[in-house]
Design a protein around this nucleic acid. Structure first.
Length: 362
DNA sequence: CATTCGTGGCA
DNA sequence: TTGCCAAGAAT
């Protein structure tokens, strides 16, 4: 492809000069620790820097190296991940850490293929960790780079399509500065995150503006082209806050995979058609724990959006009528004090409910 | 190739 | 209030 505006050498140079003065001071950039690079890249999957920042500090403090992470309990890892979302990332980090200790003597693999074999490490993360921590000449292709390149080349095709992704990856690889792949990759993502933003891009501050095909005709906000997503359905949910005579509350652990896998929660579930929230509450507790409860009063209603659906959660204060709760799915359930609720990883919607019931006298 | 998997910020 | 979307991976 013949280059417009900027030669590849000029592209690399302008990007490099810009990044040398505009790079944000981020904690995982202060040293070159493959472990920290790995943790940060996993945290940054589908997650903004501002949101990941406090989690990174806390996580590497709690688990300073691969061995510490490998020796930790999953519950402890999830507790440190609580609120960050996509909890499969935390489960995979934990699995991968044990794999690294068992199969690689505690050393993070320094090759693209070695990295990709770790659970939770895909094309992007293998390229990112490989280039940043080990200097491998692998171009990253994340949402930032896709946005920068589709604007730079005015790519009219749907970036969700595999052939388009492959072409973009080749383009990124051709532009990659082989003398400093890690810094080049970071610079590309930094441009996307701070200048070439989805809305209101700061083209006047862009180091590669003079080569940008979209900016030439003012169409930068039309890229990247994406197929529109289906609207998210809304689900009505009822949960039971069951309080025992001694004040302890009943919580259970979710199955180890799937939505919010491994997190703890108050029992409950979907409200079926024609069913009241209180009825659903009692039925779910009966099905999940084999006991009868009396819903006393509705504590609150919490609306919450997940990635592909949203819920309206009706929370009910309940009394145990009879029986000893035991889960029917083999996962543990526990009577815990209100203070102990801080020691278990809960989904966001549950945590908001906990904030309510622990600050009031109920 | 399409779907599943969180959360918070922003217009 | 709603929709969009952000340093993707697994299935």
């Amino acid at each position: 492809m013949a280059e417009r505006g900027l030669t590849i050498a000029e592209f690399r140079r302008r990007l490099s000069v810009w990044f040398s003065s505009r790079a944000r001071d981020l904690p995982w950039r202060r040293g070159v620790d493959p472990y920290q690079t790995w943790i940060s890249e996993v945290m940054l999957q589908q997650t903004r820097v501002d949101q990941a920042l406090p989690y990174f500090e806390r996580f590497v403090d709690a688990f300073p190296d691969v061995r510490a992470l490998a020796e930790a309990e999953l519950d402890e890892v999830l507790l440190n991940w609580e609120g960050l979302g996509y909890y499969g990332r935390a489960r995979n980090l934990h699995l991968a850490a044990r794999q690294v200790v068992r199969d690689h003597g505690g050393q993070i693999p320094g090759t693209y293929d070695g990295l990709k074999q770790l659970p939770g490490v895909g094309d992007y993360t293998a390229s990112a960790v490989g280039s940043l921590a080990f200097g491998l000449p692998e171009a990253v292709l994340d949402g930032n780079v896709i946005r920068v390149l589709t604007r730079y080349d005015a790519v009219p095709d749907d970036v969700g399509r595999s052939p388009v992704r492959r072409q973009l990856r080749r383009r990124a690889q051709a532009l990659l500065d082989p003398t400093n792949p890690g810094t080049h990759n970071e610079a590309m993502m930094e441009v996307g995150a701070t200048v070439c933003t989805p809305r209101n891009p700061r083209c006047a501050e862009c180091p590669i503006q003079s080569g940008c095909a979209a900016h030439l005709v003012g169409s930068q906000e039309q890229y990247p082209v994406k197929a529109q997503k289906a609207p998210v359905p809304e689900v009505q949910v009822a949960v039971a806050v069951i309080e025992r005579e001694d004040g302890r509350l009943l919580v259970q652990r979710r199955p180890p995979s799937g939505l919010l896998g491994g997190l703890w929660e108050f029992p409950g579930g979907k409200i079926e058609a024609g069913e009241s929230p209180a009825e659903a509450c009692a039925r779910e507790v009966r099905e999940e724990l084999g006991v009868e409860v009396h819903p006393i009063h509705e504590i609150t209603v919490i609306r919450h959006a997940y990635s592909h659906f949203r819920i309206v959660m009706s929370a009910w204060s309940c009394r145990l009528a009879s029986g000893v709760p035991a889960t029917t799915n083999g996962e543990p359930c526990l009577w815990v004090t209100r203070d102990q609720l801080a020691d278990f990883a809960f989904p966001r919607a549950n945590r908001r409910l906990i904030e309510l019931i622990t600050q009031e006298t109920d």
